[in-house]
């Protein structure tokens, strides 16, 4: 079985650099946040260049604010282009979210992935922005489904309809973040399996998996927080298995951004994802 069929990667953390270079883990790729490599030079670029010699890269933007109702920040877009041109990553992705809203005047960066109502107006803006990013980079990007904590009285359509139409409008690919599906299903009182059944899986180029934290909402009910600070939850692995059952082996990323563990602990999460794919693949092969 080749790497391509079990294409699992993890989010790169500089503290793991030595472990990775010394152990040459059996991984298909590493994902990095684009904004961490927008400095002029120094150790971050040195490490990423060394990593890129051994592994494919996926560049995941967290600051483009594609969901802004204003205009995209052209300066930031050209910074992203510089990173993409330099590292020639296999995948480039961003979020269905916003993090700043008045770029043209006086940018204030909110450093979070903020939600937006799903309306004809927001769909038009997001679609324009995805197209602008793709045209500037000269390549397709993947757009990630969000995790959300609030709803909007303005919302006119389901998240699935929004994502499906955004994808059709722009020809973008999608990241299906299964942890986000689990979080949003709980927080928005949706059925996660119905969400996955309706998701435009044909456009999915990458799955994301991560850990979440638990809180309570205004009524004392369970509210899940997209913390990326621990292992993938058992329920999320179960959902992942359901997705892989539909898609077959698929590019999968483990994200762990806060309270980052030692390398063996993180690597084990990637091995677990492979095990699930291998098991399902074996089952499919046996049935054929």
């Amino acid at each position: 079985m080749t790497n391509k069929q079990l294409d699992v990667g993890v989010g790169f953390k500089p503290e793991h650099f030595q472990d990775i270079m010394q152990s040459s883990p059996d991984l298909g790729f590493f994902e990095v946040h684009a904004e961490n490599y927008m400095g002029d030079g120094g150790a971050p670029h040195k490490m990423l260049s060394a990593l890129a010699e051994k592994f494919d890269l996926s560049v995941h933007g967290v600051g483009m604010s594609i969901g802004t109702l204003g205009d995209l920040d052209k300066e930031h877009l050209s910074r992203l282009r510089k990173v993409v041109d330099r590292y020639q990553p296999r995948l480039v992705s961003e979020h269905l979210a916003w993090s700043s809203h008045n770029e043209a005047k006086n940018l204030m960066f909110l450093n979070d992935l903020l939600p937006l109502p799903y309306t004809e107006e927001t769909l038009a803006r997001v679609s324009e922005h995805v197209t602008e990013v793709q045209d500037t980079l000269g390549r397709q990007i993947l757009m990630e489904n969000p995790s959300t904590y609030v709803a909007f009285s303005d919302t006119q359509m389901s998240e699935i309809e929004f994502i499906t139409r955004m994808q059709a409008n722009t020809g973008c690919g999608l990241i299906l973040d299964v942890n986000n599906v689990y979080i949003s299903a709980n927080n928005q009182k949706m059925d996660s399996y119905a969400y996955l059944d309706a998701f435009p899986l044909h456009a999915v180029g990458e799955i994301h998996l991560a850990g979440h934290a638990e809180d309570t909402d205004d009524d004392g009910e369970r509210l899940l927080i997209d913390a990326h600070d621990r292992k993938v939850a058992p329920d999320v692995w179960t959902l992942y298995e359901y997705v892989v059952g539909k898609t077959g082996p698929i590019t999968t990323l483990i994200e762990w951004d806060n309270d980052v563990p030692d390398w063996p602990t993180l690597y084990q999460e990637a091995v677990d994802a492979k095990t699930i794919m291998r098991k399902l693949k074996a089952f499919t092969d046996a049935a054929e």
Binding site: V150, A151, S153, D154, K189, T216, D218
Partner: peptide, 15 residues
């Protein structure tokens, strides 16, 4: 205004 929970009630704690 307009930030609510899934049932449509104002949701300050969620926000």
């Amino acid at each position: 205004t307009g930030i609510v929970d899934p049932a449509g009630a104002p949701a300050p704690k969620r926000y």
